[in-house]
Design a protein around this nucleic acid. Structure first.
Length: 187
DNA sequence: AGTTGGATGGTCT
DNA sequence: GACCATCCAACTG
């Protein structure tokens, strides 16, 4: 499990840095709501709005450790790959084989991969992730589960934000989790 | 095992 | 018209 915090309009790494726009409007609303955007023309990324209305903060879900549903995640990722423009039968077979070999803990180990594995796209923006009846939701840790140790490091891919913001340790992950993305972080 | 570059389209100045 | 809160294949050694 791995997330990144984006703390408001003053955070020059955040989509909220331009103020309220059509894309980021949901960030200015109530917390617990999904904000899904498209990066690099092909990858969806899931955020959870985290602060009361008026404060445009959110958490980017960068990686998740699958506890169940691995087969469904493999199917969802294969379907998403199927939307690529060139798809001959050989390429599809190769994708299926690669996904079958991919360890379960790596099925959602990246922000784009989380959305591919859970079949999340921009149409999910606005969904209430705290409503137990939502198809997509977050749930509290089980009563028997121990509180995990959290490690922190700089956020990924935000060099454009400049010295003041780029290396703040707002990338957070469960220590020793097999399901994290990108560069290792301290701990 | 580490590096490089292509894919691909929405968003903002 | 530039820039991405990315992923993966195809190289190098």
């Amino acid at each position: 499990m791995e997330v990144e915090a984006y703390v408001g309009e003053t955070d020059l790494a955040s989509h909220a840095r331009f103020g309220r726009t059509p894309r980021n409007a949901v960030m200015f609303g109530p917390p617990g709501i999904a904000y899904v955007y498209l990066v690099y023309g092909m990858h969806d990324c899931l955020n959870i709005v985290t602060e009361p209305p008026g404060t445009a903060a959110a958490v980017l879900v960068r990686a998740v450790e699958p506890l169940e549903g691995a087969d469904a995640m493999r199917e969802a990722r294969l379907r998403r790959l199927g939307r690529r423009k060139r798809l001959d039968d050989g390429a599809i077979a190769r994708d299926r084989d690669r996904l079958a070999r991919l360890p379960t803990e790596r099925l959602a180990s990246g922000p784009g991969l989380v959305c591919a594995a859970f079949d999340i796209d921009r149409s999910m923006t606005g969904v209430d992730l705290c409503d137990p009846s939502s198809a997509l939701r977050v749930e509290p840790r089980g009563p028997g589960d121990p509180e995990p140790l959290i490690v922190a490091g700089p956020r990924v891919g935000v060099a454009y934000a400049g010295e003041g913001w780029a290396h703040r340790p707002w990338r957070l992950a469960v220590a020793h989790s097999p399901s994290v993305s990108g560069p290792p972080l301290g701990g």
